[in-house]
Design a protein around this nucleic acid. Sequence first.
DNA 1: TCTGGGGTCCTAGGACCC
DNA 2: TCTGGGGTCCTAGGACCC
Length: 417
Amino acid sequence: MYGIVDCNSFYASCERAFRPNLIGKPIVVLSNNDGCVIARSKEAKPYVKMGAVAFKSKDDFRKHGVYVFSSNYALYGDMSSRVMTIISKYVDDIEPYSIDEAFFKLENVSAQEAELIGKQIQKEVMQQLGLPVSVGIAASKALAKLANNIVKTYPEQTKNVYVIGTEEKRLKALKWTPIYDVWGIGRKLSKKLQDMNVEKAYDFTLLSDELVRSKFSIVGLRLKHDLEGKPTIGFEEVHDKYMIATTRSFPNVISDLKEIEERVATFANSCAEKLRKQKSECAGAYVFLRSNRFGKEHIKLGGMVHFGFATSSSITITKGVLEKLREIFKEGHTYKKAGVILVSITPNSSHQIRLFGDENPKHQLLMDTMDRLNDKMGQGKLKLANQDIKKTWKMRQEHLSPQYTTKFSDIITVNCK
DNA sequence: TCTGGGGTCCTAGGACCC
DNA sequence: TCTGGGGTCCTAGGACCC
């Protein structure tokens, strides 16, 4: 059987785990730059829409006593890995799917046993981390997702765990689930399906394989089979990232190339650090620049750099990216967002040596040293000279909570009487 | 003043190879 | 009169997910 564990309102729950006085209170967590709402506790859902723009919602927050947090990824990332560790103890295989979700596999268990395991996971995560989770279990990943939706809708009746263990339950679940709630059916596809009179997940499974294949490609067909209870969407082994990106919006628009270069150099450097962390190299990078998508101007520029060999050197990557940036840059426009995306990523253990034009081996030593120093002394202590040195770009984070679990100075003190 | 960021997978078409 | 077949790699774009 396949299962999925999904943390409820994960970011909001992480904040609450260290602030018990917020139990039962509405909480929202904002995106980078405190831009918009990306997580809401159950209590906040009636008052705040997902994606609500923070500066426009201030009055609403005040009116309903909503507690507001900036996103604290050091905290969420650490809590996430603790959740994953607990799940691993109970299951035969685990596939972390996102920061707050993981699929798992159970071999040779009955529906009753599976439910018991689900309950144990739920209980231990709550006890050890104070995080509420929903568990869905079924014969395939898509059905497990469906079961999870049922839990989210009926937390009391299901007691946070639901198993689709019989054919009868499978059909009931399919007939209950609107097509737009099916995992893998987004806005575009649900519109298309509704035009074909497919309202429920069940209706989708009634279409012929040929029709689904022709209209929704192999992806749609796999989903259909998964919903029929024939597990088709595979269990993915954890692998290194195929793509690594650092992209940011600027607080204000920028039109000066020099300023953009500084920012982009920092993005490239941050990508290179992530790349080295996963022990990979890349052979290319994409750099892009674009205007404010809410403004009058609509300009999107971008270009691909090929390094000619696989590298993880910040120097090589930044240099290539900046050259490409200068090439694509157009004077006389205002830009709001830029980013760097590394592609053609391969493990550094299989580095292909080039007869001509490989990288200077000294880069590797220098990067190792930089990484070690930055690890020890704090991120960004050592930078490349083309990064933003004098002017520091700070993310707007007016409601940031402490790094309770990853920083010695932020560990909370508990008084035991 | 202010509107997020980071990923995956698939398809179609072009260029090329034998 | 007729004009093969099978394949790879790359890129851009679209759809989706959290």
